[in-house]
Nucleic acid binder design. Structure first.
Lengths: 148, 148
DNA sequence: CTTGGGATTGCAAACAGACCACATATGGCA
DNA sequence: TGCCATATGTGGTCTGTTTGCAATCCCAAG
């Protein structure tokens, strides 16, 4: 059903922890990262493919609608620019390039992500504390071999 | 405006990374943890206070309405039980106790949180990779000294 | 003519978040 | 005595975001 990560069998988790599919606000930094990792401009469709390979989506493609929407919103806020390729052969494609601002934004996201991580980590350790068990080591989250 | 964590000045982050206030799905495990950490049953009002001290909310109280609603939903799904205290003096209070199922659920959440963490960590390292900078060490997230 | 890459819009269900109003109870202050 | 702040619990509404689905369009290859 959802895909962030699945340390246990599907069934066991479904019982209880209702995780969101996408950690719900991480699509944007994922797209930023995909773009930053690429030498050339990419068009939306390719971004969807690449994003699918990211840890966030763990192999299953995110809904293209959402990606296009995010991309548009990113353009209006200046994180990316786009231009149309209208090759003689093939459909028109819109290619997106990261702006300097976009790169800056991603740099900031690195800190934000660290905060997310530490908040979650603190909650996690508080939880195992409260249960009186020792903090289990981070399980190796499989289900997706990440190559962004 | 929001409070998860603020490594930089407010302004700088607001520009770009739109973090949600609550990482949006972590209220439930927070409540579970608060309850698990307490020897006696707690009533809603106290849970709100204690949750406010958790890393998630970083000092600012979550909306009480939401907490009560979550609590109710948790009861119908068997994670907590409640009973009314109607002391001679003082208003009636509803006290919540974690069930075995609730404790089990929290245990599962510990794994889920680990996954969140590792997904975010991977994204973070992919991002700094893509930017060609080295992974900055986790900044110390202040703004709240956590004592759940 | 169907399939598939590529982009976009609209809609609707779902949910989160912030309020507000209400119902009690206690204790303190003027 | 009357008013108010602080506890406590609950219901309702309003607004906004998420998000997935369906439908549309273009073009090319088979």
């Amino acid at each position: 059903m959802w895909s962030v990560c699945n340390p246990k069998a599907d069934g066991e988790l479904k019982e209880c922890a209702q995780l969101g599919r996408t950690l719900s606000r991480l699509t944007l930094p994922t797209i930023l990262t995909v773009l930053a990792a690429s030498a050339e401009p990419l068009h939306g469709y390719v971004i969807v493919q690449k994003a699918a390979a990211s840890p966030l989506f763990g192999g299953s493609k995110p809904d293209a609608t959402g990606v296009y929407r995010t991309l548009k919103q990113m353009e209006t806020s200046g994180l990316v620019t786009s231009h149309w390729n209208t090759p003689k052969a093939g459909p028109a494609k819109r290619s997106f390039t990261l702006t300097t601002e976009g790169r800056e934004c991603l740099r900031r996201w690195i800190d934000s992500l660290a905060c997310y991580c530490s908040v979650i980590g603190e909650l996690r350790s508080a939880a195992s504390d409260a249960l009186g068990i020792e903090l289990p080591p981070l399980p190796h989250c499989d289900g997706h071999e990440h190559t962004l």
